[in-house]
């Protein structure tokens, strides 16, 4: 297992649209294992392959407090079950240190392949529903800051750019 580097906003590679996974093979399973290690170390509750510069439709999530319920979503599709808006203070490993209230539908149905390539679907609510939508956005090249006003987004961008310059 290896910890991977997480791309940070405004890195243009985060805007890449990911390709569907053709076959769930050992290569994908290694990617999944590495993504879990990267996510747990961050610490995060979800990670999309896009964030580690792999442009395939793979998402890992673990929203449990004890971090013992890892979930894998390959080629995930989401369908809104209840459009009623649901607010949550989201943060993102690619936008470190910033938390903003984002409104999304509160209940969705997700269908995806698991790490053995089998189809499954579930109807999450709460944090898991928020998280899966957040991660699927990543696969489509979208970030949670896109939901914010341009003013807020630009302020976050300049702060992160400054941090990147200082690190370099």
């Amino acid at each position: 297992m290896a910890k991977l580097e997480i791309l940070e906003f405004p890195d243009p590679r985060l805007r890449t649209k990911a390709q569907p996974v053709a076959e769930v093979n050992d290569e994908i399973r290694t990617l999944v294992a590495d993504m879990f290690e990267t996510m747990y170390a961050a610490p995060g509750v979800g990670l999309a392959a896009t964030q580690v510069n792999v442009h395939q439709r793979v998402v890992v999530i673990d929203v449990s407090e004890e971090q013992d319920q890892p979930m894998v979503f390959i080629n995930p599709e989401v369908e809104v079950l209840d459009p009623a808006p649901h607010e949550y203070d989201e943060g993102c490993l690619s936008v470190p240190g910033f938390y903003e209230t984002i409104v999304r539908p509160g209940r969705v149905r997700v269908s995806a392949l698991d790490r053995d390539g089998k189809t499954f679907s579930l109807e999450p609510d709460g944090l898991l529903a928020v998280c899966i939508q957040h991660e699927i956005d990543h696969l489509d090249g979208k970030l949670f800051v896109d939901y914010l006003s341009p003013l807020k987004r630009n302020r976050i961008r300049s702060k992160l750019e400054k941090a990147h310059r200082q690190r370099a």
Partner: peptide
């Protein structure tokens, strides 16, 4: 997605 920070 980042885990909600709650340091302070």
């Amino acid at each position: 997605m980042a885990r909600k920070s709650g340091r302070s």
